[in-house]
Amino acid sequence: MPSFDVVSEANLVEVKNAVDQANKEIATRFDFKGSDARIEQKERDLTAYADSEFQLNQVRDVLTAKLVKRNVDVRFMDNGKIEKIGGDKVKQVIKIKNGIESDAAKKIVRLIKDSKMKVQASIQGEAVRITGAKRDDLQAAIAQLKKDVTDLPLEFNNFRD
């Protein structure tokens, strides 16, 4: 029976490349000269450091631009609270989301069931598996999800025929 998985995963290699490019640009920009502005990455957590909140916003803008150039959806970014670390220096933890949360997965399953298509949706951990009798039904389900789910960066993979 044909099936595919609906997932939400960022390409961590591209995220790392974007962080490296952002750090290079920050090091060469005149408005960051002599400051401690940088971005550090540990797995799925990015930490942005700067001398002021204004500079921190600039660092985040540079990172966002580099992520967009590398085709990483910025909806994966979950900005934390801005923390003071001493003097005027500030930092912010940015988490890279992975997987579909249970509420969003339930919403996707409900959307598929309400559409009256001849497909079934089931939650498989952090993914949603959609199965159907015909490939055309699955393609219609993909089109429906692309149209209706805009708050999550969805990918469709593991297509079986």
Results as ranks from 00 to 15, higher is better:
113 K>R: 15
57 N>E: 14
91 K>V: 06
45 D>Q: 13
76 F>C: 02
106 K>M: 10
138 L>D: 03
96 I>R: 08
134 K>T: 15
28 T>R: 14
17 N>H: 09
132 G>A: 02
20 D>H: 08
113 K>Q: 14
63 L>I: 07
18 A>S: 07
11 N>W: 00
70 R>K: 15
66 K>C: 09
24 K>M: 11
74 V>D: 09
105 A>N: 00
97 K>S: 07
88 D>G: 12
48 A>V: 03
64 T>M: 08
57 N>G: 15
57 N>P: 00
35 S>W: 06
81 K>R: 12
91 K>L: 05
136 D>W: 05
92 Q>G: 04
135 R>M: 11
36 D>E: 13
142 I>H: 00
59 V>A: 09
57 N>I: 03
76 F>L: 05
46 L>V: 04
77 M>N: 07
149 V>M: 02
44 R>G: 07
150 T>L: 12
23 N>S: 00
3 S>R: 12
121 A>I: 08
144 Q>D: 06
1 M>T: 13
147 K>D: 09
110 R>S: 11
148 D>A: 13
60 R>A: 12
123 I>C: 10
122 S>F: 14
127 A>P: 10
41 Q>T: 14
47 T>Q: 07
65 A>I: 02
36 D>W: 13
137 D>N: 09
161 D>A: 14
37 A>S: 15
13 V>F: 06
90 V>G: 02
24 K>S: 12
70 R>Q: 10
32 F>C: 04
42 K>W: 01
1 M>L: 14
95 K>W: 00
